[in-house]
Design a binder for these strands. Structure first.
Lengths: 111, 111
DNA sequence: CCTATTGTTCGATATAACTAGAACAATAGT
DNA sequence: ACTATTGTTCTAGTTATATCGAACAATAGG
């Protein structure tokens, strides 16, 4: 039972600040079908750990995609027990790129 | 002086149909700073030939970027004399991905 | 016919990206 | 302590992308 802020042992995850988000990076993060499915799942079902997305790629590949999304500023990851809880950074994205996530989520048809 | 429809000699440019546009392809096309600047220029200044964008890349590189945009369905190119006139496929994009182009064009800050 | 203009295509290189397996790390539970 | 769970990191292979220079193609205008 860890405290709420075991700074020493807490795994470090790099997240860009809202201001440092770059459109081209975000667009690139959203240009992969696997990552798009992650984002859509987060939008629909809310925050969830990596293992619950039903991705049809290897664990290490999934980890790569979560990292790309995180480093582009699309998702936030926080450690909780043995797992990482992911969530969409909607407020930050809406603030910097108004309408972008709505458009991505609203798009129909094949990815 | 060629006619309006010299089908035999007209250079063939592949453009995807509206229905066949894919979000991941469009997102990828819009994930490069050079291509984003092309799209923004088209949105602001309207259709224009390749040579008028002031791109700081080699001719062949620019040609590559125009091709990526065209094959993703982001722009339309038509031959006119010795040049190719480019235009944004706004209606098609707005139809398939409502709000996406608006969001890209409305985004502020560094690319 | 010759030349200039515009942009494409080809060939080559360098970098980045996607993929996976194996090993590792952190935590939870017994 | 031991084990199971969750996900990361490392290493590697394959593919894709960005870039450029040189050669080519189509057209316009002397």
């Amino acid at each position: 039972m860890a405290g709420l802020c075991d700074t020493e042992t807490m795994r470090v995850l790099h997240h860009p600040t809202r201001k440092s988000l770059r459109l081209s990076k975000v667009m690139h993060a959203l240009s992969d079908p696997v990552r798009l499915s992650i984002v859509r799942s987060l939008a629909v079902r809310g925050e969830q750990p990596c293992g619950t997305f039903g991705l049809s790629v290897a664990k290490s590949t999934a980890s790569h995609h979560f990292r790309v999304l995180r480093e582009a500023g699309v998702i936030q990851m926080r450690a909780e027990g043995t797992q990482y809880i992911n969530s969409l950074r909607r407020e930050d994205l809406d603030s910097r790129f108004p309408g972008l996530i709505d458009a991505v989520l609203g798009a129909t048809g094949p990815v």
